Simulated assay, not measured.
Amino acid sequence: MQAYCDRCGEPTASADGHAACRAARAMEPPRYCGHCRRRMVVQVTPVGWTARCAEHGESHG
């Protein structure tokens, strides 16, 4: 489980449950690392996306 929301960077244990973030993430790549809350380098292409955290590496979608 991630400690931080990968869209807004706030702790996932927030009272609102990040429903708006989950809905937005269906169409957007992550912007923050869910493990360490660092802002990630994101590249969007016509066929997908790549997000890279300096500490935890790269993810694809």
Rank of each mutant, 00 (worst) to 15 (best):
3 A>T: 11
41 V>W: 11
31 R>G: 10
33 C>E: 00
49 W>N: 08
3 A>L: 13
22 R>K: 13
54 A>F: 07
14 S>N: 09
40 M>N: 02
7 R>T: 02
32 Y>G: 04
53 C>H: 06
59 S>E: 15
38 R>L: 11
13 A>E: 07
1 M>G: 14
37 R>C: 09
25 R>K: 15
19 A>V: 11
10 E>C: 07
13 A>Q: 06
34 G>R: 10
30 P>E: 03
31 R>L: 14
58 E>K: 14
59 S>M: 13
49 W>Y: 15
19 A>I: 08
30 P>T: 01
25 R>W: 11
6 D>L: 08
19 A>T: 09
24 A>P: 02
7 R>Q: 13
12 T>E: 10
51 A>Y: 05
8 C>F: 08
10 E>K: 15
47 V>M: 13
43 Q>W: 05
13 A>H: 05
38 R>Y: 02
5 C>S: 04
14 S>K: 12
56 H>M: 05
13 A>I: 07
14 S>D: 09
6 D>V: 10
6 D>F: 12
32 Y>C: 02
31 R>C: 04
5 C>Y: 00
60 H>W: 14
34 G>C: 06
61 G>L: 08
52 R>E: 15
15 A>Q: 08
56 H>V: 00
50 T>M: 13
2 Q>W: 12
43 Q>C: 13
11 P>C: 01
39 R>H: 09
